[in-house]
Design a protein around this nucleic acid. Sequence first.
DNA 1: TTCTTATATTGAACACCGCTCATTTATGTG
DNA 2: CACATAAATGAGCGGTGTTCAATATAAGAA
Lengths: 195, 195
Amino acid sequence: MGRRSDHSRAELEELILAEAHALMAEVGFARFSAREVAKRIGYSIGTIYNVFGSLDRLVLAVNSRTFIAWAGLVRARLDAAGADRVAALVEAYFDFAEANPNLWMAIYDHRLPPDAPFPEGYFRQRAELTGLVEAEIAAILLPAKIGTAAALARSLVAMVHGHCVFALNGTFALLGETDARGAALARAREVLAAQ
Amino acid sequence: MGRRSDHSRAELEELILAEAHALMAEVGFARFSAREVAKRIGYSIGTIYNVFGSLDRLVLAVNSRTFIAWAGLVRARLDAAGADRVAALVEAYFDFAEANPNLWMAIYDHRLPPDAPFPEGYFRQRAELTGLVEAEIAAILLPAKIGTAAALARSLVAMVHGHCVFALNGTFALLGETDARGAALARAREVLAAQ
DNA sequence: TTCTTATATTGAACACCGCTCATTTATGTG
DNA sequence: CACATAAATGAGCGGTGTTCAATATAAGAA
């Protein structure tokens, strides 16, 4: 059937995706290219497009893989956490981003064309991370305020995200800030104490 | 001297920059191109490079212009603000970003190569916005805690930034959040009350 | 006026990019 | 063997950033 190797379609998809993920980690979103992925796995550019259809969808797949790894780390840290679960969440958020800056930033660097709809499973993935946070928040809140847990979780994630963005893109360094995660955690504690 | 029109060098630089700024507002960072700028002002691509040297520096100039306009709006809102100056800051931050999403996002979408140093005046510009916030924070803080104003200002800006990013990139919409600025302001109030 | 000089401006050329699709290659089947 | 089916190719298209020898023009000198 024209296979030049013994790769099944699923194996080929995995081969491409793994190399694409590695390239993204190495060079970042701006220098990522489908042609370079093809070159590195020894296939032609056409094969990439046969399997993934477009660069957008390949990047989406790369980012999806990154997101799964990220959520996995957060979950693992939470499972291993002691009493201070909020600290565990913040640390896990920062640790992943700082250990994989190009992969993490690619999640937010890539934007699909304005008309294109969110792909299948996109929502579920994002909601998983927020869901972990929401569960922890709900466990802390007074019973009367549990209804606000979801909104508060989104807000806290945004807050930590802002600190993480500034830590990775150099804004904090430029402004003399050296402890982004400490600041994020302090803010989270103050916000939670106020509920 | 080979001028094909009566533009002085400074006027030509302004002509290019104005058109580049307009193009960035129209199409955003991902679709921005020096060739399109050249086409729109009726000059050749070479002229753009004679004046700005590289795409990086052109984008930097565009973003600098955006940043000046943004800081100007924040300052104006602060001058016109009543007692609730924190609300004025948050509103101004969001209003500019939402009124000029492509310009605002370009500031953070663009990253200079890792080896390249920050250009002249880069720090001063960023520090201006943070400085406005810092002054307001310092006016609120107890005298004993004024030394923490700078760090707290950076942290609060990061916090609002995170909310603004999620509002513009669709993350909040995906998660069912509709009031990003309200959430940002509520967090800011809680954090400040805790100091 | 004409000539010279300095500079503003050009745009073809190069190496890359995403993307398409007619063509080739290889396999399993009858 | 021949046929059908599917995998894989890569030249070609229109785009990008970037360079730089060549050109065009204005100002000053003779």
